[in-house]
Design a protein around this nucleic acid. Structure first.
Length: 745
DNA sequence: ATACATCGAATCTAGACAGCATGTC
DNA sequence: CTAGATTCGATGTAT
């Protein structure tokens, strides 16, 4: 099917596609069109990565908009939201406006209502529905990217319930679900009343194989000699081999430490294959990486990057990650070793993909658990760059022939697993049942069960007994904790229940917070941090050996500050959890007392990305805590608010005023304070040379700060060089100490 | 006495969404 | 019920 023959799109779009070099639709795309995606028909497309899923979504959304409708594109990751937005923005010249809404980036609410296409994460969509966003019932088309995530036990239920709600609100809604190849796409299609487009077709060939001994054995029977030298690892030989052909390699491993270790070794391989020009560019890139943060992680990354390799995991700051991703895409970095962050994230194709570790530690499982075929296939799908590589290669590693056979059976020749709804679990239903009641989708037990009939879970299970059972125990929980009222079979959300639903809190988190703040005598920042760290919405730091003693001691030292009732030291599980929360809280306290980023990283064994992540979550939960305290009139708002501001800015109490000024972060605020400028009022009155000195002689920065604080004459021109001699002297190393942890897109 | 190799035991383990109101370089 | 890379540390060995 030719793009020129496409009907129902905004004027100019087929021509624009043609101009992009797209004359002919890929077979799965053509199939989707035949199934009616451009005519408002629902479609589930279960096809490999990079086989043109986005185009199917675009055809659906553009045609829907052309008919006067409004489309929503649901993504699983915030990073993907901005990527998709940029991609869709090329349609703006044909009259299609695009907006984004995620937790940390929001097109203005009103303005969003006027957009034709909105990109948002599933949680944000859920939240928007809970808060009654007015434009939700104008939607005519919803695209759900990576629907196979309904299989995820944590985030899957949200996607599932959100799709069910959207369809309930809007009966004629066109649903386009894009999925990786999964074992039961037909069930998903049936659930969504959609036609199924299923295909193994890829624009570039993918060869999968296992490296064992001195060769890769491919699924098609081919072999490729890749001898492993003595003292050499398989991955090193494979990276060198790809390099010989001018290709880059992506190596998936199972832990951060392994990612860093592998990058170090592989840097020895890549560094031999660099041109002088590349060496120069890499040196610059390494410098940029060091500028992001002065932690050990950052330094280690810069070191390997200078040699043409890199590691990638969630301990990196977001800016680190995008620097690495971009340089890898530009083929400057030759090899990246990564944890699964890179498999699910933004598009980073590579000539060859190596899945080095196929088992990963899983506490619940009690050991190393083999990865799902679905996950391994997702990683392998990153192999082969359309238009650049003749084909992609995905290679698993085996040390012996038994392992090789197992890998073939388990992954190469295996069909991916079916996706299974994880909805019938208490934590998921706790949140979603409350939200369903609070936003008026149901007002009785029967109504809830009827609503749940629209979920994947219901369509997958034979006996409804389990869902009913969990629903009952969750309803009891919600009632006992005062989130819902039940009377004569009718269920209504209480005030606090509504608040919890709107705040997007797990009701259990809310209960913990309320319980901790109620009857609290003295509320300190550490107490607040510990409270929110105990919550199921906060992912705690891992308690290492030795930490147990350290934090037990700290616990007794500061016992009085902690809110709520501490578990007994003899209740191992609960006490351990309490200490893990204390460890996390201590990290937040360090941050809020201006401890340097690298010291925190060292003390807690975390990366800059972890610090930012925890700080972010704490900020959100403390904001929620503040509102809960307000709703319940607990009289601790001020203390909670201060604790929140302290983590938000990462400063001690005395800097709160200054740090609120735009362009003034924790470091600059501290320097100004030490120079005697202690408040915004001081800043408006202060001697300019003092301000300039405190800011290490940066005139532009000083001017903009004075402007931001509302000073009438922010001009720095009158300040003479002579007055700054001391400052200039002390700034020989012209490094701006401003923390760059916060990297918001 | 000191530096260093060796071997076995101990250690440790992926990821990342959300409120609200504004603004890090 | 399940692992494996890496670090730690005790012991041994060459200088």
């Amino acid at each position: 099917m030719k793009t020129a023959d496409l009907a129902g799109l905004p004027e100019g779009v087929p021509e624009a596609l043609h101009a992009e070099g797209i004359e002919e639709l890929y077979p799965p795309q053509a199939e989707a069109v035949e199934a009616g995606v451009t005519e408002g028909e629902s479609v589930v497309a279960s096809i490999p990565t990079a086989s043109g899923k986005t185009m199917i979504a675009e055809l659906a959304m553009l045609s829907s908009v052309q008919r006067g409708g409004k489309a929503l594109y649901i993504v699983p990751l915030r990073a993907l939201a901005s990527e998709k937005k940029t991609e869709f923005e090329r349609w703006e010249e044909y009259g299609v406006d695009v907006g984004v809404s995620t937790g940390n980036y929001d097109s203005d609410g009103e303005w969003l209502a006027s957009r034709d296409v909105i990109v948002a994460t599933s949680e944000k969509v859920d939240s928007l529905i809970r808060n009654g966003a007015p434009w939700v019932d104008d939607l005519t088309c919803v695209v759900s990217d990576e629907v196979h995530l309904v299989n995820d036990s944590h985030r899957g239920p949200t996607l599932e319930v959100t799709l069910a709600k959207l369809r309930r609100i809007n009966p004629g809604l066109q649903v386009v679900a894009l999925s990786a190849t999964v074992g039961n796409a037909d069930e998903v299609a049936e659930w969504l009343d959609a036609s199924l487009v299923q295909s193994e077709w890829r624009p570039i060939d993918l060869k999968m194989g296992v490296h064992y001994g001195n060769a890769i054995n491919f699924d098609d029977g081919d072999q490729r000699e890749v001898p492993v030298g003595t003292g050499q690892k398989q991955s090193e030989a494979l990276v060198a081999d790809t390099l010989d052909e001018g290709g880059s390699t992506l190596v998936f491993v199972n832990s951060r430490r392994n990612a860093e270790g592998a990058a170090k070794r592989l840097a020895g391989v890549t560094s031999k294959a660099l041109t002088d020009g590349e060496r120069n560019d890499l040196r610059q890139l390494a410098a940029d990486i060091r500028d992001v943060s002065d932690t050990e992680t950052s330094e280690d990354l810069a070191t390997v990057v200078a040699k043409g390799a890199a590691f990638h995991h969630a301990g990196l700051a977001a800016e680190h990650r995008s620097l690495v991703e971009d340089a890898f895409r530009d083929r400057l970095i030759k090899c990246v070793s990564a944890t699964p962050t890179l498999a699910a994230g933004v598009n980073t194709p590579s000539r060859r993909v190596i899945v080095r570790d196929w088992r990963r530690y899983d506490g619940e499982f009690g050991g190393m658990k083999p990865l799902d075929a679905l996950e391994v296939h997702q990683m392998c799908g990153r192999a082969g760059r359309p238009g650049l590589d003749p084909y992609g290669e995905a290679v698993l590693l085996a040390k012996d022939s038994e392992t090789m056979d197992e890998l073939f059976e388990r992954y190469v020749d295996a069909d991916p697993e079916p996706v299974l709804s994880k909805l019938a679990a208490e934590p998921a239903l706790r949140t979603h049942l409350l939200a369903t009641v609070a936003s008026g989708f149901a007002n009785s037990r029967e109504g809830l069960l009827e609503f749940l009939e629209n979920t994947l879970y219901a369509s997958q299970t034979q006996e409804s007994g389990r869902l009913e059972h969990v629903t009952d125990s969750v309803l009891d929980y919600l009632e006992v904790n005062g989130f819902v009222d039940r009377e004569d079979g009718s269920i209504t959300a209480t005030d606090i229940g509504h608040t919890v639903s709107r705040l997007y809190l797990d009701p259990m988190s809310a209960a913990e917070i309320i319980d901790g703040l109620r009857d609290a005598e003295e509320v300190t920042p550490l107490g607040c941090y510990h409270l929110v760290c105990r919550t199921p919405d906060m992912y705690q730091l891992y308690l290492k050996s030795g930490d147990r003693e350290e934090f037990t001691e700290l616990f007794y030292e500061r016992e009085t500050e902690l809110l709520g009732v501490a578990p007994s030291e003899f209740d191992d599980v609960a006490f351990e959890d309490w200490l893990a929360a204390l460890k996390t809280a201590t990290m937040l306290e360090d941050w809020a007392t201006e401890v340097d980023e690298d010291r925190i990283a060292e003390r807690f064994g975390v990366g800059p990305g972890d610090i930012r992540g925890k700080v972010d979550t704490a900020e959100w939960l403390l904001g929620a805590a503040e509102q809960l305290a307000g709703t319940l009139d607990l009289g601790v708002n001020v203390a909670v608010r201060e604790a929140k501001k302290r983590v938000q800015y990462g400063v001690r109490e005395e800097l709160l005023d200054l740090a609120g000024v735009r362009n003034v972060g924790r470091k600059r605020a501290r320097r100004l304070f030490e120079a005697g400028v202690e408040s915004r009022a001081d800043l408006r009155e202060a001697d300019k040379s003092v301000v300039l000195t405190a800011l290490r002689g940066r005139r532009r920065t000083a001017e903009s700060i004075l402007e931001n604080v509302g000073r009438r004459d922010p001009d720095m021109e009158e300040v003479r060089e002579a007055e700054l001699e001391a400052a200039t002297f002390s700034t020989a190393n012209d490094e701006d100490g401003q923390s760059s942890l916060g990297d918001f897109g």
